[in-house]
Computed example of a mutant assay.
Amino acid sequence: MSTTPVLPTPGDAPSSIGVPPEPRSPARGVWARVRHVALPFGSLLLFLVLWQLLAASGTWSETLVPSPAKVWDAFVNVSTTHDGVRGYNGTYLVEHLGISLRRIALGAGIGIALGVLSGLLMGTVGWVRSLFEPWITFLRTLPPLAYFSLLVIWLGINEEPKVTLLAVAAFPPVAVSTTTAVVAVPKSLVEAARALGASRWDVVRDVVVPSALPQTLTGVRLAVGVAYSSLVAAELVNGLPGIGGMVKDAANYNNTPVVLVGIIAIGVSGLIIDGLLLRLERTAVPWRGHA
Rank of each mutant, 00 (worst) to 15 (best):
V49Y: 04
V49C: 03
L50A: 12
L50F: 09
W51H: 06
W51D: 01
W51V: 05
Q52E: 06
L53F: 07
L53P: 03
L54Q: 04
A55H: 01
A55M: 01
A56F: 10
A56P: 05
A56H: 05
A56E: 09
A56I: 03
S57F: 05
T59A: 08
S61C: 04
E62W: 10
E62Q: 09
T63K: 11
L64K: 09
L64E: 12
P66E: 02
P66A: 05
S67R: 04
P68F: 15
A69D: 08
A69S: 11
K70A: 13
K70Q: 14
V71S: 02
F75R: 02
V76M: 10
N77K: 15
N77H: 10
N77F: 10
V78C: 04
V78T: 06
V78I: 04
S79E: 10
S79K: 04
H82G: 10
D83N: 13
D83W: 10
D83Y: 14
D83L: 12
G84T: 08
G84D: 12
V85F: 09
V85R: 12
G87W: 01
G87C: 04
Y88E: 10
Y88V: 03
Y88R: 06
N89H: 15
G90V: 09
G90E: 12
L93E: 11
V94C: 08
V94G: 11
V94W: 13
V94L: 08
E95Y: 10
E95K: 12
L97R: 02
G98P: 07
G98E: 15
I99T: 15
I99F: 15
I99W: 10
S100G: 09
L101F: 14
L101K: 04
R102M: 15
R102C: 07
R103L: 08
R103K: 15
R103E: 05
R103S: 01
R103G: 00
R103Y: 09
I104C: 05
I104Q: 06
I104T: 08
G107H: 06
A108Q: 01
A108N: 02
A108H: 02
G109L: 04
I110G: 04
I110Q: 04
I110W: 05
G111R: 00
G111K: 01
I112G: 00
A113V: 14
A113F: 11
A113H: 06
L114H: 02
L114R: 02
L114V: 11
G115M: 03
V116S: 01
L117V: 14
G119W: 00
G119A: 07
M122P: 03
G123N: 07
G123L: 04
G123R: 02
G123E: 03
T124I: 14
T124V: 13
T124H: 13
V125K: 14
G126D: 13
G126L: 09
W127H: 13
W127V: 10
W127C: 07
V128L: 15
S130T: 06
S130H: 14
L131T: 15
F132D: 01
F132G: 01
E133D: 12
P134E: 03
W135H: 10
I136N: 00
I136R: 00
L139S: 01
R140N: 13
T141E: 05
L142W: 07
P144C: 05
L145S: 09
L145M: 11
Y147L: 09
F148E: 00
F148D: 00
S149V: 14
S149L: 15
S149Q: 15
L150H: 11
L150P: 06
L150E: 11
L151E: 13
L151F: 14
V152M: 11
V152E: 07
I153Y: 12
